[in-house]
């Protein structure tokens, strides 16, 4: 279990590529700089895509959790 405190949970379960990063890019502005969004996704490609998205967009993936019914990705808004 992650003890990261998320400002918002973004449910992207069931959405395939490219929707997870598209939704992420649309939602990142809904939290303040420094806050974290907890993303729930069922797309295994997101494990690679979210860090790539974060690097390019200047944000940060703090942690990912697998093993449950869905993948959790904790994304911190950095700009």
């Amino acid at each position: 279990m992650s003890d990261i405190n998320a400002a918002k949970v973004l449910d992207l379960k069931g959405l395939p590529c490219p929707m997870p990063v598209v939704k992420m890019s649309q939602e990142i502005g809904s939290v303040n700089v420094g806050e974290v969004i907890e993303v729930h996704t069922t797309d295994p490609g997101s494990l690679s895509d979210f860090p790539a998205w974060a690097e390019t967009s200047g944000n940060e993936v703090l942690d990912t959790e697998q093993g449950g019914e869905f993948i959790k990705i904790f994304v911190k808004r950095n700009n």
């Binding site: 590529c17 490219p18 990063v21 598209v22 998205w53 390019t56 200047g58």
Partner: peptide, 12 residues
Amino acid sequence: MIIATGAAAMGM
């Protein structure tokens, strides 16, 4: 279209 929307989502 998938590459284009993905790229736009990455801030390009």
